[in-house]
Design a protein around this nucleic acid. Sequence first.
DNA 1: CTCAACAGTCTTGTATACAAGATTGGTGCG
DNA 2: CGCACCAATCTTGTATACAAGACTGTTGAG
Lengths: 225, 225
Amino acid sequence: MTQLPDSIEDSVISAILGGRLRPGTRLGEAKLAEVYGVSRTRVREAMMRLETRGIVHVSARRGWFVVEPSATEARAAFQARRVIETGMLRDLHTLPGDAVAHLRAHVEEEREALHTGHVGSRTCLLGDFHIHLAHAFGNAFLTDILRDLTARTTLVSMLYQSDQDAAASSDDHAGIVTLLADGDYAGAARLMDEHIRRVEDGLDLAAAPDPLAGLREILSPGAPA
Amino acid sequence: MTQLPDSIEDSVISAILGGRLRPGTRLGEAKLAEVYGVSRTRVREAMMRLETRGIVHVSARRGWFVVEPSATEARAAFQARRVIETGMLRDLHTLPGDAVAHLRAHVEEEREALHTGHVGSRTCLLGDFHIHLAHAFGNAFLTDILRDLTARTTLVSMLYQSDQDAAASSDDHAGIVTLLADGDYAGAARLMDEHIRRVEDGLDLAAAPDPLAGLREILSPGAPA
DNA sequence: CTCAACAGTCTTGTATACAAGATTGGTGCG
DNA sequence: CGCACCAATCTTGTATACAAGACTGTTGAG
């Protein structure tokens, strides 16, 4: 496999997970090519791959944009995650020996990020928990699928979630890990279902995506004239 | 969205679902470009999209090949389908009014294909059932995911399934539709679990992918010298 | 006869050139 | 003053050219 296009993809995705790239942001081929020091060809490859994964989309002869999930898509993305993650836990019968320890350590990281308050790494870690869980389950396909779905739900949260209750999410994660440690996989599945539903219900899907987000930032008080 | 690359993608996928394209088949860019009457650029786009969907892979400077799932990947692909499809049915509480009728009609088509005996359309229809079911569930993301996973499991079957018991599969499908009609979604989920497990267990994962499949055909008795 | 080295051919990898459409800013008419 | 029209600019869409590596078949030595 080529090396650099993958790196562009990962770079974009981690920027989304970290909240540095918002829905609707334009990704110009020329600009990206300069940033990564490659030609447009490679950038286009990466963009088309990301498009297939549902992370960006192209508007003909206008450019590439980070997707802005509609209310319908937002619901569907969370539902998909719920179906897959609970299905995974329900199918679970054994877990690798070190999995619980890893997950516990991860939750501990979340806790720290909550206190230090860095919103980017916090969001990123909260999403990563689910990916790590999928990894522990041991199915590479499901892990990849959930990675992309998590990126999507992160974008959804940026659009529709006014105040992300990160502490509650982290508590849910901790509870899930505890149940897993006890071998209560059905219980973990139930809690996961509640957990994702809770996040989903916290969304304000009536809030239309704000096409002026970029402008607003620039015009906010304190910005240079 | 562009029009032709999608058509190349769909064309390749439907060829796989119909058994006309076997695992390991080489897809040369120049040849495909000629077939579709476009330049290599468009072909490469389509191939890269299919690669991110896990349908083909590229071997550096040798060409594009239809993926040949390993035994591990074969198991994982079926497990992923099982997790998602049972998760979907368990999450189900209502179904669109015409869904059951559509599914029933589809199963009827399967039956007919079983009798006429055209192996290509039969395989295609058996896979399509699951995609139609996902469509009835109404989640576009899950539908797309299952479409790709079904393509993968079709490839798995070509590699590891000596004799596909199509009749039994179709009976399972009919049973699932009956349970859905009764509103017994939990029962449908259980039967789906058994169904996919049955197909999975029917695989001979010890049978290593045969790199000589193409040769063998040519050298089989009766072939011209 | 066997095997290693090599030249030729073929295929993908990457960049670049040019075409086509979209957007923007300006200009002139009503 | 407002609005429609138009030219200039910018961005992606597509094709093509060339570079780099892999494979094949041949040739020659041992």
